[in-house]
Amino acid sequence: MNEPLKILNQSNELVSPELSDTVTLTTLDKAIDMLSTIVSPIANLARSNSVWPLTFGTSCCAIEMMCVGMSAFDISRFGSEVFRATPRQADLILTAGTITRKMASALITLYEQLPEPKYVIAMGACTITGGMFNDSYSVVQGVDRLIPVDVYLPGCPPRPEAILDALLKLQQKIRTENYAKRRLKGYDQRPVRYVDYDSGRPMEDLLAMAMEETKEVLTKQDNDNTK
């Protein structure tokens, strides 16, 4: 029921349903992928040193995210003070604050709008497990149910120093990983892929419901016709 949507191509290989419906990859992008073993050390160094976060904040953690940009903590030392408002120019989502079912679809959209390579820091207890609102009817229990997470940053809310620590951990991760291999992983760890914007429910469920309903109606019509 909650398995990821699987798309098979003509030769019956699993195609990760990634981005192909929303964006087009240019030839430059593909060329860089091919050259990745040569360029990846340089690229990783550059990427790790200029992680631009998206100004995405829902609740309490967002305030600490603002504090970390201010003079007392100063995230700009690590080259990350360029908070971009548009996902197209950001590299990192700091999911600052609780993600509810209503917000889930927006978060997924934002994540898909980020250009590769993209990173996620699950900031705060709410985005790791649901935190204090774990059992609330409207809260998503952990943002890793929606999007893949690179670094988990606990705290309610985490202190700004902790955010800097998470950023440094992420930088370390970027420096040591092979991006081409990371891309092959795709979105496999994500159980809920398409979510309806208003209801916040997985699209597969809605589709299955709609299919059942139509089947019912059709059988009913058939029954009526036979009578």
């Binding site: 909650n2 079912r101 209503k102 889930a104 497990t129 649901g130 774990n134 059992d135 009817y137 409207s138 809260v139 998503v140 229990q141 952990g142 149910r145 929606l146 159980p191 809920v192 208003d198 209801s199 916040g200 429910r201 997985p202 469920d205």
Partner: peptide, 30 residues
Amino acid sequence: LNPWDWEGHPLRRDYKQLIDALNDKNPHSF
């Protein structure tokens, strides 16, 4: 507050909350 097609009224005493992929982790934890 809830999405427009939400089922049920959460503050009723007999409300049963939806358990699906988004919150099946320990529904009665705390």
